[in-house]
């Protein structure tokens, strides 16, 4: 924006005042182009560039360019490492439509939706208690206790679960101790649900906590005053008021569980192939089918982007950043 000197909203006395403004505007040269605002204006772009530049370059080199590379590779049908390739085409994408691969995608969705639902069912009461009922002085300590597992590697935590779930593990030990038959837990879809729910429950609780903590208690009092029972208060006030937080937490957990690799690999075994493991197998497995793997990656990127778009549209982003 260009500012005309004659209409410039600073009184002349301010411009001649010998303090902050003098270095920028010598009082003896009051020509139109020489006000400090005019001089500064062309350089205003410098600020954003300095602030956003490093992160921008980082994202460009390590995210945008690789994604474009994957997009290109995905469009080369039958591309295998070390083999001459043909021209561009949609063959890799058509290959995904084979029932065997659709089943993998379906299974990934079932893992993601199921463990998100489990996280929500278990996380909401905990977050509710933490935000509204727990003793004020213990609240921060309790929150830290909840975040603590996140400070260890997800790989280690998944390994820990293998010792619990394996045939001679802790869980079966407890079951046989109380007279129940031992079960085969490890390398089943059940183990994947347990592992995913365990891994992402803290995120769910944290985001829901941030949302519930902002709940205006006076609204609950107003509802009670108007005759609403505690149950009605919950469904008609608490849930609608925290819906953006619920959406944010659920979508975040959904995104994470949909693309998780560690838990299905370590706990799920051969029966729990999901899309991340399928992609891994295309790139590092014996077939080295980079073209097909890239197409699968593009599908996953698309699905996650869609979920993020929903998150931005409907979720309460403040609760995510606060958590």
């Amino acid at each position: 924006m260009k500012i005309q000197n004659s209409n410039f909203p600073y009184p002349p006395t301010l411009l001649t005042f010998p303090t902050l403004l003098t270095p920028m505007t010598p009082a003896h040269s009051p020509t139109p182009s020489n006000t400090w605002a005019d001089r500064l204006a062309p350089r205003l772009w410098l600020g954003p560039v300095t602030l956003l530049g490093p992160a921008g370059v980082w994202l460009l080199v390590l995210l945008v360019l690789p994604t474009l590379l994957i997009l290109e590779i995905s469009l080369v049908p039958g591309l295998r490492l070390g083999q001459p390739s043909g021209g561009y085409g949609l063959g890799n994408y058509l290959q995904i439509l084979q029932p065997v691969y659709l089943r993998v995608i379906w299974r990934s969705l079932v893992f993601a939706v199921g463990s998100t639902a489990l996280c929500l069912l278990m996380g909401f009461p905990v977050a509710y208690w933490l935000a509204l009922m727990s003793p004020q002085r213990w609240r921060n300590l309790l929150l830290v206790a909840f975040i603590l597992p996140l400070w260890t590697s997800s790989l280690l935590r998944a390994y820990a679960w293998t010792t619990i779930l394996r045939p001679s593990g802790v869980l079966n030990g407890m079951l046989t101790a109380i007279g129940l038959p031992a079960q085969n837990w490890l390398n089943t879809p059940t183990a994947v649900f347990i592992g995913l729910t365990y891994s992402f429950l803290p995120y769910m609780v944290l985001i829901l906590y941030a949302s519930l903590e902002k709940l205006d208690i006076r609204l609950l009092e107003a509802a009670a005053d108007l005759g609403a029972t505690p149950r009605q208060c919950f469904w008609k006030i608490t849930v609608p008021q925290t819906l953006p937080g619920i959406a944010a937490a659920s979508l975040l957990v959904f995104i994470s569980t949909l693309s998780d690799f560690v838990v299905p690999t370590l706990l799920g075994g051969a029966s729990s192939m999901n899309i991340s493991r399928l992609i891994y197998n295309q790139f590092l497995g014996p077939t080295r089918a980079w073209g097909f793997g890239s197409a699968l990656s593009m599908v996953l990127i698309l699905a996650v982007s869609l979920a993020i778009a929903l998150l931005i549209r409907y979720g309460d982003r403040n609760t995510v950043t606060e958590a």
Partner: peptide
Amino acid sequence: PAHRRPVNTVFQSYALFDHMTVKDNIAFG
């Protein structure tokens, strides 16, 4: 408890339900 008393309160902060329209706020009780 409050929800079984024959009184209604006008709150200092109004405590209107911001996820409902004016009509729905009034119809709540």
